[in-house]
Design a protein around this nucleic acid. Structure first.
Lengths: 222, 222
DNA sequence: CATGGCAAACTGTGATCACATTTTGCCTGC
DNA sequence: GCAGGCAAAATGTGATCACAGTTTGCCATG
């Protein structure tokens, strides 16, 4: 049961032929978003190419695309690393999440049905298991999947797309955050979100989401 | 051919050495954001390269970066065009502006001073002149500059960066909008924004910005 | 006049290469 | 022991090329 949940959330039903640069892009993107790479981790085009079995050209395109989304930083001399965020930038990104995510939740609420809430419940349990296992990557993955499952219902691809780039930028930082504080209990506000969803309470849902988003990142401010 | 001539490195005393792909990126980005290209306009890598005097490689990188920001669309077969937005997507992007821009305005308000307001006033007059001249590109440019001048004061680069990608996506569409409705009066809410700024009234500023952003794009909904 | 098809032109993709710059690591001299 | 410097290795950049897929334009056919 949990095997399904640990799989990639975005499963393309019909994946025709993936261009090489797209395979590289997706692979790197998942590594960054799920916090598999620490902040400041260095990458090389030749190394990426070797990992994915392609030449430098597709690796460069994937890197260029990811750096445009803020998932990777490129130094003045062109070297590629995962970003190291300042506290100010983390605060800004948290603020963006606090603005966009309640809106997405509200839009999803109008279209939500019981099966959706049940699915979120299951993901939340997988999230709790990741907490018990002290598995930061699993924690980040299930946490994002919990939110994304709800927001997909909002039918607002532009907003969700923008939000995912924010998640991307926070990926390496969240890894540090969740490895450092070794939490022992799952995020309490996921329960509040589920309750508000069942009750159809828009204001309560917005508040629960905003609190969940804001609180998690507060702990990082050193 | 004059191929050799276009490839000769020309010594530029003042200009810092700018990577070729970055020059191409900036050039295309400005064309898109200022509405110099209509929605659906086709571009080719070889054509872009020729325009900027570079080979396909930097052109491809610039295009890849811009498509990651939503400034360009890439078809299934890899063809590059400016995006043609659906009404739903326009509504979403307007909603994002309505969420982010009041926040940026509010942050800027705390740091605003008289010289800033004067500068915005001057830009607004240039905007009015563009209206009189029926110059859509000038109108879009000065309109964005008006907003950006304010938001730069917010000292929130992450939020502003995200917002600029939204502007980018709306560029070609705004061109259509403003050429179609041939407005004869400048946007009235710019005045309200300036008044709220002078009064230091946060709530009034947020409302003025939200209205300005929302109203402009309402006219496009067919 | 409309339609189908086919060849030519066009276009994006990925590999490879030469080159300039940066980074690394070692070794000398103090 | 510690800088400083220098050569070697590593790295990103941009040009070029072959290739496959797509689009275009023209002509024959009905």
């Amino acid at each position: 049961m949990s095997d399904i949940l640990t799989r990639l959330p975005i499963a393309q039903p019909d994946a025709p032929v993936q261009a090489a640069h797209d395979r590289v892009y997706r692979g790197l993107r998942q590594q960054v978003m799920h916090g598999e790479l620490p902040p400041g981790h260095a990458l090389t085009l030749r190394g990426i190419g070797k990992t994915f079995g392609v030449s430098m050209t597709p690796a460069r395109e994937a890197v260029r695309r990811l750096s445009a989304e803020g998932a990777l930083s490129i130094s003045a001399s062109g070297r590629v690393t995962t970003p190291e965020l300042s506290n100010d930038r983390i605060e800004e990104l948290a603020q963006i999440r606090a603005l966009l995510e309640p809106e997405l939740g509200s839009r999803a609420l109008r279209r939500a049905h019981l099966a959706l809430i049940d699915r979120m419940d299951a993901i939340n349990e997988a999230n709790a298991r990741a907490v018990n296992l002290q598995d930061p990557i699993g924690y980040i993955r299930t946490n994002l999947e919990f939110h994304r499952t709800l927001y997909l219902r909002a039918q607002s691809p532009a907003i969700l797309g923008l939000l995912e780039t924010v998640w991307l930028q926070l990926g390496p930082t969240m890894r540090v955050l969740y490895t450092r504080l070794r939490r022992t209990t799952p995020p309490p506000h996921h329960r509040h979100m589920l309750e508000a969803l069942r009750a159809g309470d828009d204001a309560a849902l917005r508040l629960a989401i905003r609190t969940d988003v804001t609180q998690g990142l507060k702990h990082l401010q050193a």
